[in-house]
Design a binder for these strands. Structure first.
Length: 958
RNA sequence: GCAGGGGUGGCGGAGCUUGGUCAAACGUGACAGGCUUAGGACCUGUUGCCUUAGGGCUGCGAGAGUUCAAAUCUCUCCCCCUGCACCA
């Protein structure tokens, strides 16, 4: 039995003693492998092993391929989570405390976790300990945390540079806001953790025909303004006149509260809704004068409480007018103008995307709003949910496939017309935008207050929308290696869409924002170039450099080679040698880099990583490679606190051993897909490892010296596998690589032994290559095996095996696969023929294997070239073979030609020899005498049935 | 809504870029057998349907198309997942 705990501690110590993972620049080609640093608000669970283990496996692999590899580690603590954590502990949050207990955090430590400093220190310790146990080949001398002063100096430099380059901009920014606490509200600040969604609404100003005031109508579809027949107000809504920007607006009282954070609103006086209903308003685009009517659906707290009515395209508006008519409300003459035509699909235009439910007959295509109600088999008195559904459907179809029939943008797609009109109307000040929380359910802050939108002004952004910057990043992306491949498109798309991003925060841990020291730098923005820090942080510590010494001159010189080292030394007071070392180290390690992370960071961190590197570092140091790995599921389910299925990494290692867990998580699934962690899967690794472990004893008992067919086969397989595995490893296809060198190699080993392979040297070569190739992923086990088979060096410092193409022998492998297939065939033949009455109560006395004549293979492959029997027969390659026999043999294949493939070009003689050589194996397997014959020399009536890859089999019963 | 990614056998999940060797890798589950006092582990076989000699049929979200040939290419539709910013 393998004692994983024992081999883990043993070999981890050996690596540590040999300083295997503490590289410095040398004459080899360097490689810096980094993974996104973990947040320190919890100890690691088994899911964390995926990313860090993938990076570690890659680092170890590349080291064995001869590169000088650095794999450092750091910790992330900036932002609000640690503070929120401390607050929750202070409040005695039971859920959090239970979670900590799951991770075996001691009560006395939990008590101390009201202190953010203690929290970060505690979890840094816990994480480092667990990742060490997991066998991470990390240079721990270089660890740091993003809250330390030394690190802050790098971030200050980063932001001063961004400012210099004009990449920091100020502007307004809508955010969720609690009016009670006067604080921004994010997802974790709301009841039920609802993410406040903010939506932009266009507000169009309709001038009151009788005064200087405006009706301000909120709408999602300003392009329908051409069809406005009237305005709607709510009869039970309280309205006011309010002064906004020197103009007088009619709007609901509620809306003045909701919008108070977005514009300066001075409520003047309340206005009776009856008064409004008596008025008329002027359409700013068509200049038509329209009446103001009561709308049953108008709500005080949505938009402005005033709505423009487009009955031709809005089911609610259409229904409201119909209801007024039904109530004998005096309505003026109105024209229901059709504004948009949906392009039909298969003749269907109204409802082309709607396939469920019972369709009603559409009789009024000229009034789309009505047509959609008809389609849904409903009417104007329908419940609101039906009208809502109709609204959604018409909105979707018209936005998608609608073309404008009227107005300035006639002929354009509706969606484009909408954007153009928004621009036009806001430019002419006939409209403006408001923002609203668009969640279905209202969102409440944890304090109970309804969340509103606040438009923050003078907010600093990093302007990722800058065109020059984007273009440069796009060019860099073209040259980058990205694994898996599909993320290339994703990155392109994200770069295309990413825009200015707010970069300062009012609260949280982190580096003070230089342009507003009251604020801190947002915690994704401060972790975009930290990999730079790994390359020289240990030098800074070694030379006892203080934070205040790290001036801009230092980073300018070290990172961008600006200035003179002696001047920098004088300014900073740092030794010239230390500064030089820092610069040299950075340049060396940044010559090639690989960045690893889970897919959730693709959309933010990884893109920002590229952007910031491009902006701040010289071109040779720009990102080279990004590797994205999937997440980990546990027993078929996503690991989550609510499911209570989170397994602490430490527990997992103690229970299963670090290597089997590494194998399952890293090689258990393709790089980009979720990997399935289950007890069963780990157990299967445990037992396979035992088999390999035991194979060493088998090896020691082997004594064969002469090379036989099966030995050549084994050599061929070993080298084929090395070649394939290497290709896969280079592309980070760990799963495919390890299917080759672990699962399939184990099967080869078994087949080799079953077939009577017993050559000590061959078996030794096999095991050695397998151990070497397992070293990156199961380093402790490989190390143990390495020494068990007599190795004296450390396997982690050994070279990855080179495939020997000269030992790859396709013919030998082909023959062997014919033999393997024949085993199954014989078994089947025995089973089937035993049921024949004539064979009742008889035993097998012999098995005759009849190998097809050589011309059959030649003829068969010719048929696939010539596609025609006549031409095959005439082919000079078949000279001397009876044309009648050839034609008879090929006949059955002709009509199946499209599905046939060539058989390997292996001479029948080789196949024959192969069977002769394996007769002993067959004899042992079937307990019968084995005869091997060539078809041409056989007297058996079954001889003619032999096929190139399938010998004919005759079972003799007696 | 916008953007990205998907829909394959009992399940998970390959394959689809370069259409044919795909009834579909690999894993897992199920069934039968072996080994065992038994269980576990391990080994062997079976696991879409039909077929007592290696054969046939149906099949990869739905529909249509291209092709001698489609899980694989094109189009349309339906459904699912993820992200959308103060949240690391």
């Amino acid at each position: 039995m393998i004692d994983y705990k024992d081999i883990e501690t043993k070999w981890q110590k050996a690596w540590e003693d040999a300083k295997v993972f503490q590289p410095e620049p040398n004459d080899k080609e360097g490689l810096l492998v980094t993974a996104a640093i973990p947040y320190v608000n919890s100890p690691p669970h088994i899911g964390h092993l995926r990313t860090y283990g993938t990076a570690d496996t890659y680092a170890r692999y590349m080291r064995m391929r001869g590169r000088n590899v650095l794999y450092p580690f750091g910790f992330h603590a900036t932002g609000t989570p640690v503070i929120a954590f401390a607050k929750r502990i202070a409040k005695g949050d039971k859920e959090l405390i239970d979670e900590l207990k799951l991770f075996h955090v001691a009560d006395e430590d939990i008590k101390k976790m009201t202190d953010p400093v203690f929290i970060t220190e505690y979890f840094i310790r816990a994480q480092e300990a667990d990742f060490r146990r997991a066998g991470m080949g990390v240079d721990w001398r270089r660890k740091f945390v993003t809250t330390e002063p030394l690190f802050s100096k790098l971030i200050e430099w980063q932001f001063s540079k961004l400012k210099e380059k004009g990449l920091l901009i100020q502007g307004t920014h809508p955010i969720g806001w609690c009016t009670n606490e006067s604080q921004p509200v994010g997802q974790h600040d709301t009841k039920n953790d609802a993410q406040p969604r903010i939506e932009e609404i266009t507000v169009v100003k309709f001038k009151d025909a009788e005064s200087d005031a405006y009706f301000v109508c909120a709408t999602y579809r300003p392009e329908t303004i051409y069809g406005v027949t009237n305005l709607f107000v709510g009869e039970s809504v309280g309205y006011v006149s309010a002064i906004v920007g020197g103009e007088r607006y009619y709007m609901s009282l509620e809306s003045t509260h909701a919008l108070a954070r977005q514009m300066k609103i001075e409520v003047e006086k309340t206005v009776d809704v009856k008064d409004l209903l008596a008025r008329h308003a002027i359409n700013p685009v068509t200049k038509e004068t329209v009446p103001v009517l009561p709308g049953f659906f108008v709500k005080a707290d949505v938009g402005t409480g005033v709505v423009m009515s487009v009955p031709s395209h809005a089911p609610f508006d259409y229904a409201a007018l119909e209801r007024l008519r039904a109530g004998n409300y005096a309505l003026p003459q109105m024209e229901y103008k059709k504004l948009i035509e949906v392009e039909p699909l298969n003749g269907v235009s109204v409802g082309r995307s709607w396939t469920e439910g019972k369709r009603g007959r559409v009789t009024h295509p000229e009034i789309p709003a009505l047509a959609y109600l008809e389609l849904l088999n409903t009417n104007t008195m329908a419940v609101e949910s039906s009208l809502e559904f109709a609204t959604k459907l018409i909105y979707r179809e018209e936005s998608h496939w609608g073309v404008m029939l009227v107005g300035k943008y006639r002929g354009l797609k509706e969606a484009e017309a909408r954007e153009n009109l928004k621009k036009d109307l806001t430019a002419s000040r006939e409209a403006f935008f408001i923002y609203e929380i668009s969640n279905q359910e209202p969102v409440y802050c944890r304090c109970g207050t309804k969340v509103v939108v606040n438009v923050v002004s003078d907010q600093w952004f990093i302007n990722y929308g800058d065109d020059n910057w984007k273009n440069e990043v796009s060019r860099v992306l073209l040259k980058m290696r990205i694994y898996p491949d599909k993320y290339k498109h994703t990155f392109d798309a994200v770069v295309d869409w990413i825009d200015a991003r707010a970069t300062e925060r009012a609260q949280g841990l982190g580096t003070k924002f230089p342009l507003n020291p009251e604020h801190i730098i947002e915690s994704l923005s401060d972790s975009t170039i930290y990999m730079v820090f790994y390359t020289f942080v240990h030098i800074l510590r070694q030379w006892d450099v203080h934070p205040e010494q790290l001036s801009a001159e230092f980073f300018d010189y070290v990172i961008n080679s600006v200035g003179d080292v002696s001047v920098v030394a004088r300014i900073t007071g740092i030794d010239e040698i230390a500064i030089g070392k820092c610069r040299q180290s950075l340049q060396y390690w940044y010559s090639d880099t690989s960045r690893h992370s889970a897919p959730d960071l693709v959309y933010n961190h990884l893109v920002m990583y590229i952007f910031n590197h491009v902006a701040l570092l010289p071109p040779p140091m720009w990102p080279k490679q990004i590797v994205v790995n999937g997440m980990v599921n546990y027993e078929g389910e996503k690991m989550s606190k609510s499911l209570g299925n989170i397994i602490p990494l430490g527990d997992g290692i103690a229970k299963y051993g670090s290597d089997p867990m590494r194998f399952i998580e890293i090689a258990g699934a393709d790089l980009d897909t979720e990997t399935e962690f289950s007890v069963d899967s780990v157990n299967s690794i445990l037992s396979k490892n035992e088999t390999l472990y035991g194979a060493v004893d088998v090896l020691n008992a082997m004594n064969g010296v002469e090379l036989e067919h099966i030995d050549y086969w084994m050599y061929s397989r070993i080298n084929t596998r090395i070649a394939k595995a290497t290709e896969h490893m280079d592309r980070l296809e760990f799963r495919d690589a390890y299917t080759e060198v672990y699962y399939n190699a184990l099967r080869d080993m078994k087949w080799y032994m079953d077939r009577g392979g017993h050559n000590h040297v061959v078996m030794r070569d096999f095991l050695e290559s397998a151990i070497l190739m397992l070293a990156p992923i199961m380093p402790h086990f490989a190390e143990e095996m390495w020494h068990r088979t007599g190795g004296t060096s450390l396997v982690v410092q050994e070279k990855w095996p080179e495939p020997n193409a000269g030992l790859v022998n396709a013919a030998v492998e082909d023959v062997e696969s014919v033999i393997e297939g024949t085993v199954d065939d014989i078994a089947e033949v025995i089973q089937l023929s035993s049921k024949i009455d004539a064979n009742k109560n008889k035993r097998i006395s012999g098995i005759k294997i009849i190998v097809a004549d050589n011309w059959k293979r030649i003829a068969y492959n010719m048929l696939l070239d010539h596609r025609n029997i006549a031409r095959v027969v005439k082919d000079p390659g078949l000279k001397g073979v009876d044309p009648g026999k050839v034609a008879k043999f090929l006949g059955p294949f002709v009509n199946r030609l499209p599905t046939l493939f060539k058989v390997p070009e292996v001479d029948s003689k080789e196949v024959y020899d192969g069977f002769r050589g394996s007769a002993g194996y067959f004899k042992k397997l079937f307990r019968a005498e084995i005869t091997v014959e060539m078809e041409g020399a056989s007297a058996s009536p079954r001889a003619g049935r032999a096929l190139p890859t399938k010998p004919s089999i005759e079972v003799i019963w007696a």
